[in-house]
Amino acid sequence: MADDDRAVKNKGLDSEVFHIGVTDLSSGVVERTRMRRFLDFLSRLKNPLTIIGIVIVIGLILAAVLAPFIAPYNPIKIDLTSKNLPPSLDHLFGTDGFGRDIFSRILYGAQISLFVGIVSVLGAVVVGVPLGIFSAYRGGYIDTLIMRIMDIMLAFPSIILAIAIAMVIGAGMHAVTIAILVVSVPIYARIARGSALAVMQETYIEAARAIGAPGVRIIFKHIFPNILAPILVEMTLDIGSAVLSLAGLSFLGLGAPPPYTYDWGRMISDYFSYQAVTRYWWQLTFPGLAIVFCVLGWNLLGDGLRDAMDPKLRLKLSKAAKKIIKDLKQKQHALKRSFKSNKKVEVVN
């Protein structure tokens, strides 16, 4: 109200005042509100599990980026004088049958896992999201056609697909990446379509059509930014499962060719033997733990993001409000108890 009144008074502004208004704003107010919103968002991530997730993911990224600098040994250098050594200060996670340092290999393995995970998920988003929005935007039989194709793709097992792709373009990281990418496209197409259908009910989409915005603009400027949140969450969760798929596929030998076999899944398959299980426990345990922590980290981060972006969960209660709610609950409880006891008394009478 007050704002409206002031606005009416300012109706006769000249250009000089305009100028001052604009510079004033670009320097301070907007920055502050944007900063505040960002901090607000961060504070919503303050769940202990989410923080664990963030720490793990940051740790993974650091490990991948800094691997050449912090890895104590060359991950592919064979040293037969120090084979099958148990964990020690020299070799934190021990060594394998060729004398390679497992700790260094796991650090380098993080590079592969993160690269494949992020690239395949980004690729799937780039293909799947526009398909999904387009499908929702056009509707009718085109929508049905696209979604049925997605259903067919969803029914296709990623391992068979990866083997097929590897047959065509040769085994290696790119084959695995493409296989995971193709398999996760329908997931994004579906999410994008569902969210886009909801957004398209909003009046601002109709307003955009009224000002003559072409379809491409409506899809990318008006629908896409408004369905970003669920897609972002799904991406974070999906990087975890992409890492898992990668481990599975490279366990089957579809990953990078030797000597670059320091992918976590490939390590497990290479080291897997009777002796490893009975005597060299560190050879299987540490790559396995790396996979577990990587997937866990991304999933925790994804869950946290989902909660933080859910507008219904945004309600942040002050201490006073919490106290009031607690009091109310207690009173309710007391009431219930008294009600129950009253009833008993009646029955007795």
């Binding site: 704002d3 606005a7 208004g21 670009s26 107010v29």
Partner: peptide, 18 residues
């Protein structure tokens, strides 16, 4: 009858009339 400073804001920062 709005102010130029409003141009850099987002819709949720306004009242219904604005």
């Amino acid at each position: 009858a709005l102010e130029p400073s409003h141009l850099l804001r987002y819709p949720h920062e306004f009242s219904g009339g604005q």
